[in-house]
């Protein structure tokens, strides 16, 4: 009986709380708030907060056109794999200080898991056979390369700082990082970690492909890039993945840098974490979205590999010398 119960709880974890349903609602709300705040900043009234929900369910009801030139299986399978991988990442990220599913993946694995949703979009676009999708996926790949270097530097510096304190000199597992922060204060307060935190906040819009860095899905230039040939339910699933990605990355930032402020009760922690994520999205995604214009792809690459990487490098060097 115990196994059945524990597997049910396990299933509950996957499908309900930190899993699919929680991500769905959190992702949709965050995107809704993001669109509303951007509108408010442009003195517009902006769509209702639940607009992404309406978009998602409308797309679920629309007809799915599969172009004749497309490779049908990959075309339909790509969005589903992308969504599944995105939700799986969310399961590993500890909700503030209490990791729910720990012991499966660590920081480097998360770095690689973040590739899968982007790859799902790339292979979806490439399977549709449209030239717009070809240009879109080429830009998306350059965006991934651009965001990789800062993320690598940030993760290595976090691993080094936590490793120093833990004595093993190196610690990649998220649960240890959460435990360390619960023990002696969140990493954000350490001097060497502030540049890494800033770099991480600058990487989030790039990684999720939000406005200034959305050369890959520029609806004005290349007709929604990789999603040019998608309609109906697959398109809805892609939009959902995009929404959950925004939430996951901000949750990752909270887990890495603001770990220590948990209260122990899981649900309350989740609400606090969601609130912090919303505040972070407003400042670092909506404000940047409302204020800047879209970057060309090589400006984006140069920006990430020079400006943001040096900030992250500073924190790595500081962490290296044990600050």
């Amino acid at each position: 009986m115990a196994i059945v119960y524990s597997s049910l709880v396990y299933l509950g974890y996957i499908l309900i709380f930190p899993g699919f349903l929680f991500c769905f609602v959190a992702g949709m709300l965050i995107t809704g708030i993001d669109r509303k705040i951007v509108a408010k900043m442009q003195k517009r009234v902006g769509p209702p907060i639940l607009q992404p929900m309406y978009d998602f369910f409308k797309l679920m009801g629309k007809e799915t056109i599969i172009p004749a030139a497309a490779n049908k299986t990959v075309f339909l399978a790509a969005p589903i794999v992308g969504l599944a991988a995105m939700v799986v990442i969310q399961l590993f990220i500890p909700v503030i200080s209490t990791p729910i599913l720990y012991g499966t993946a660590d920081l480097i694995v998360i770095l690689y898991l973040l590739l899968i949703p982007a790859l799902a979009e790339i292979y979806g676009g490439s399977a549709s056979g449209s030239p717009y999708a070809g240009v879109g996926l080429s830009r998306e790949m350059v965006t991934i390369i651009a965001c990789e270097l800062p993320l690598v530097l940030i993760f290595l510096s976090v691993a080094k700082t936590v490793g120093n304190a833990m004595g093993t000199g190196l610690c990649f597992s998220l649960s240890d990082i959460a435990a360390y922060q619960a023990a002696n204060g969140s990493l954000m307060l350490k001097a060497s970690m502030i540049p890494a935190a800033i770099a991480m906040l600058l990487v989030i819009p790039g990684e999720t492909g939000n406005h200034p860095f959305d050369a890959a899905e520029a609806e004005t230039e290349i007709c929604e890039g990789m999603l040019a040939e998608y309609s109906g339910a697959p398109l809805g699933i892609y939009k959902l993945t995009h929404a959950i990605k925004t939430f996951t990355l901000t949750a990752l930032f909270v887990a890495l840098f603001l770990g220590g402020i948990g209260t122990g009760i899981v649900l309350l922690d989740a609400l606090i974490e969601f609130a912090i994520c919303v505040v972070l999205t407003i400042i670092f995604i909506s404000l940047v979205h409302a204020v800047t214009a879209r970057l060309k792809i090589e400006q984006l690459f140069k920006y990430y590999w020079t400006a943001v990487s040096t900030i992250a490098l500073i924190s790595l060097v500081l962490a290296w010398f044990g600050m």
Partner: peptide, 15 residues
């Protein structure tokens, strides 16, 4: 525009 954006956040929309 950052100052305008933040100011707009708290002012009435011009719609």
């Amino acid at each position: 525009f950052v100052r305008e954006a933040v100011k707009n956040l708290f002012s009435r929309s011009s719609c």
